[in-house]
Simulated scan of single mutants.
Amino acid sequence: MKVVLLSLGKTDEDFYVQAMDIFRKRLSHYLPFDLEFVPDVKNTKNLSEKEQKNLEGEAMLSRIQQGDYVVLLDDKGKQYSSVEFSRYIEKKSHSVPKRLVFVVGGPYGFPDEVYRRANEKLSLSRMTFTHQMVRLVFVEQLYRAMTILNGEPYHHE
């Protein structure tokens, strides 16, 4: 199984890029992992919130393949502790044949078409984070999950 984090827009801040690169490299020892970026929608000043959300959704859906298991990172999704998330990843590794795709939405969330395509929703926190922070938190938690599953000392209880 390959894990993909699909996100709108690129990461601009160097410190986020550097931190994500550290965790991406560490993750490569455990499983195939990719960060995929959908370009930001242009000329958003001329678009309504709904139009922008729909264009972002179309771009995201174009990157999702048939057979992908899609998990939206959504504030209304299920929340897990780090240990519970590691068990979640372990279960998915036995049931998802190709790609487990986690999706970070745009500033207005996901349009209905993306919700309909999703298999489930997961929340990283009840708090609101920037999209760049969500990417970093997710990659770190995925790495943490892998170390938990492998009995390594990165995670302490």
Rank of each mutant, 00 (worst) to 15 (best):
Q132I: 06
H131C: 03
N150T: 09
T147M: 05
T147S: 05
K121R: 11
A145D: 05
L142D: 07
Q132D: 11
N150G: 06
F129R: 02
R126K: 12
M133K: 02
Q132Y: 05
T128K: 08
S123R: 05
E140C: 09
L142C: 08
F138Q: 02
L122C: 00
E140S: 08
G151Y: 07
T128P: 07
L122D: 00
E140N: 09
G151W: 05
A145V: 05
E140F: 11
S125T: 14
H131W: 00
R135S: 05
V137M: 15
V139A: 14
I148R: 01
L136V: 03
L149S: 14
F138R: 03
T128W: 12
T147R: 02
L124D: 01
L149M: 12
V139I: 15
R135C: 05
H131E: 03
M146V: 09
V139G: 04
T128F: 10
S125P: 07
M127P: 06
N150E: 14
A145C: 08
A145R: 02
V139Y: 09
K121G: 02
A145T: 04
A145Y: 00
A145G: 10
T147G: 04
F138Y: 10
L136N: 01
G151L: 15
M127N: 11
T128L: 09
T128Q: 15
L122S: 00
L124Q: 03
K121H: 01
M146A: 15
L122M: 08
Y143H: 07
F138D: 01
H131M: 02
R144W: 07
S123A: 10
L124R: 03
T147I: 06
V139E: 08
N150Q: 09
L142M: 14
S125L: 10
K121C: 07
V134D: 01
T147V: 06
K121N: 04
Y143L: 04
S125C: 10
G151A: 11
Y143F: 14
M146I: 13
V137I: 12
L149R: 15
R144G: 08
R135V: 07
K121L: 08
V134H: 00
F129I: 02
S125Q: 12
Q132R: 06
V139K: 03
T130V: 12
T128S: 15
R135G: 03
L142Q: 08
L142Y: 11
L149Y: 09
H131S: 01
R126H: 14
M146Q: 13
E140Q: 12
Q132E: 11
V139W: 09
N150L: 07
T147F: 01
L149V: 12
M146P: 13
L136D: 02
S125Y: 06
L122E: 00
S125A: 13
E140K: 08
M146W: 13
I148A: 06
F129N: 04
F138K: 02
Q141G: 14
L124P: 01
V137Q: 11
R126T: 12
Q141D: 10
E140R: 06
M146E: 15
V139H: 06
R144T: 07
L149N: 13
M133H: 03
N150H: 10
F138H: 06
E140T: 06
M133F: 03
H131V: 00
R126A: 14
V137R: 11
Y143W: 14
L122W: 01
Q141Y: 14
L142T: 06
L124A: 03
M133Y: 02
V134Q: 01
T128E: 13
M127I: 09
N150P: 04
M146T: 13
L142G: 06
A145S: 15
I148E: 07
Q141M: 10
M127R: 12
N150S: 10
L136F: 05
